[in-house]
Design a binder for these strands. Structure first.
Ligand code: SF4
Ligand code: SF4
Lengths: 141, 141
DNA sequence: CACTAAAAAGACACTTTATATCCTTTTAGG
DNA sequence: CCTAAAAGGATATAAAGTGTCTTTTTAGTG
């Protein structure tokens, strides 16, 4: 259970690739797709989502392509994942307790809340910068 | 993403119900299903799985039914969830790194490992006892 | 023993989500 | 105007999720 979809996996690969390039370098979708081994048409859809959310900037026409929307140290893995997969929801009652009817007294409910928090915490603690360079965030600098 | 399936949700409801009964009380599937509001035929399949893994004991024929396989304080939520949903796998490379080819140098890979660990940790820290009584485990007693 | 209660097993049907491709349209440069 | 490239939309296929139905096995009971 809890498996990331291909879409999510591809999304990460694609944007981490961008994060490894100079911030203002415009990359062709076809190049990115080839580099990270993802079906180009599929990656196109993903990057369209990214583009709408400002995670990447896109340019059309000759000389067009994609570049990162913000500095890679300011984009967390959580943002990337949620951009394409939606919110992280271990159980539906986490987002809509009213759906269940048992949520008032249910002892399992808070556990899912906790799971959600933990997962979000981990993903939020990782930036594209770290993912592209392999270096842990140097928070004390 | 990461949503528990209905099956998983139903499984938990069903077994937590059992955990709230005296350990040697035999409950009818139909009663359990009605009590926790789950389609009886579906719950049957789930309890068959539980039975094979020893999480519940089953008795056939007249006077038959189900009871918990072990003391509720010795069954963790992790066990229950993994019994019906399989392992908790945030990304497939967590369980089969060889599938990816990039796993050797991939910086995202360890993040999924960490996510897996956190989720398992949370679920492992919760027992059926706590879930049925609402009381946190009193480890210091 | 025959009858009945109850779970086990297996097959099946339907829905939803995931995965991917294709075609057309828009935008921008040369 | 022609070409490069992304955006948008429709569609196709496969896989997973959700649930039902029927038949079989097991066990108690008069
Ligand atoms: S029973 Fe509890 S855990 Fe399950 S959906 Fe309802 S509130 Fe959530
Ligand atoms: S690229 Fe990294 S995170 Fe993605 S599947 Fe491969 S090893 Fe795992």
């Amino acid at each position: 259970m809890m498996e990331l979809t291909r879409k999510g996996e591809y999304a990460i690969r694609g944007i981490v690739y961008l994060a490894g390039k100079p911030i203002d370098k415009v990359c062709l979708l076809s190049d990115i797709a080839a580099a990270v081994d993802v079906p180009p048409t599929f990656l196109a859809k993903i990057f369209q989502q990214f583009s709408k959310m400002g995670l990447v900037k896109s340019f059309r026409g000759t000389g067009g392509g994609f570049m990162l929307g913000r500095a890679p140290e300011n984009i967390t893995l959580l943002e990337v994942v949620e951009a394409v997969e939606g919110q992280i929801i271990p159980n539906r009652c986490v987002v809509k307790p009213s759906d269940c009817g048992r949520s008032d007294y249910c002892n399992v409910h808070p556990v899912w809340k906790r799971v959600q928090g933990e997962v979000r915490g981990v993903l939020e603690g990782v930036t594209l910068k770290e993912l592209s360079t392999g270096e842990p965030a140097s928070k004390t600098n």
